[in-house]
Design a protein around this nucleic acid. Sequence first.
DNA 1: GCCTCTTCTC
Length: 450
Amino acid sequence: MIFRAAKTINRNANRFHPHHVNNPQSKTASSNLHKRRKVIPFVAELKQLQDPKQALSLFNDYTQRSFKHHYPSYAALLYKLARSRSFHDVETVLDRMQRSNTHCKESLFIALFQHFGKSNLPEKATELFHRMNKFNCSRTLQSFNAILNVLVDCDRFEEAHDVFLRSRDMGFRPNTVSFNVMIKGLLGKGEFGKACNVFDEMLQRKVQPSVVTYNSLIGFLCRKGDLDNAMALLEDMNKKKKYANAVTYAHLMEGLCYMEKFDEAKKLLFDMAYRGCKPRLVNFSVLMNDLGRRGRIEEAKSVLHEMKKRRIKPDVVVYNILINYLCKEGRAAEAYKMLVEMQIGGCEPNAVTYRIMVGGLCKVGDYELGLSILNAMLISGHCLRRETFSCLVVGLLSSGNVDGACFVLEEMKKRSVELDMESWETIVKCACGEDKGVSELITELASLSI
DNA sequence: GCCTCTTCTC
C-alpha cells in the first residue's frame, strides 16, 4: 500500500515542478561526466547517491576492493552523513579517519561542529574539539571560536564561558570574534550590562571591537525600542572609524518599525546610501516584513518590485516573508504561485519555505498539494519538523486519503520523527468516526510500531 | 565543496 502511495506521490512531485526535481540530478550527472577522469571514483559515485544510508556501505565496498581512502574521500563522506544527520555513522567514519592518520583540514571539523550544533548536540561538538589533537590536523583559534559559538547558540552560555576562561591553558588568545561570541551570549540572556562590561574588557585587553561587536549591541537596543542609545552607539562607532554596514542600518530600521515609525525606517533606507552604505537585501526585507505583519501585502510586493528595479536579486528569505504572510492570510494559492515564481527566477526554496508552504496549504485544506510539496522537500534532502508532518497526516486522513497519510507516516518513521499526542488523538477519532479503511490503517500503524 | 562573530523568514 505504501509503495503504491509513494509512486502516486512521486508523479505528483514531478508535476509540482519538473525544473526543481529533475535539474539538480541531471546537472551533477553531466558535470561528473565531464570531469570523471579527474575525480576520485569513490567521491564521484558517492555524489550520485540519494540515500545517505548507502554512503557508508559504498565506502566499505571500496575499502574491500583495497581502495585507499584519502582526505577527499573522508571529507565528502562526512559532509554527506552530517548533512543528513546520520551522526552515528559520522562517529564511525571519524574513528577510521583517526586510525588512518589521514592529514585533514580544520575546516572539516568546524563544519562538523556546526552540524552538531544545528542538531542541538553541543556535547558531541565539544567532544570532537577536545579530540582534534588525536587527528593529523592543526587546531587554531578558529576552531576555538567555532566551538564557543556552538555552545552559545545551543544556549550553553556557562559552558562557553568556562571554555573562554580556559583559553590561555589551551594556548589561545581570544580575539575580536571570541569576544563577539561572548557578547552575543550575554545579550541572548538579556544581560546588557554584563555585555557592556565585556566590551570594556576588550578595550582593556587591547582587542579592537569591530562593526559586528557594535551591531550586536545596537541590535539588542533596537529590539528593546531604545533607539536613543542605539543612535549613541552609532555615533561612537563613527568616532572610532568603525563604519556602519547594512546590518547596522537593518537593526535601526527594525527598531523604527518596532516603534511604529515605518516611514522613518523607509527614509533611513534612502539615507544610508547617502552615508556611504549601499542598501542590501536585509534592509528591504525588514520593510517587507513590517508591511506583511500589518497585512499590507500588496505594498510588500511593491517593495519586491522596487528591489528588482534596483537590480537587487531577491533571495529565499525575501520570498519566504511574502509566502509566509500570504499563507497567514489564507491565500495559499497565491503563495504557491510565488513559490513557482521564485524557482523560475532561479531561487531555490529552503526548509523554511517548505514548512511555511505545507502549513499554509494545510490551513486551507489543500492536503494533496501539501503532500507533493512535502515530497519535493524530501527529495531535495531537507529536514522537516514534527508539526509539518503532523498537520499533513491529520489533514490527509480527514480528507480520506489513507494512502497519502500512510506514506507520510512511513517517511516519519524512517527519520525517527514521532507524531505528537494531539495528532494521534485526532487520527483515532477520525478513524473511529468513519469506517473508510480503518482496519487497513490499524494494521499499518501496528506494523510501523511508532 | 561546506572554514569562527552581527542580519530578515518558520
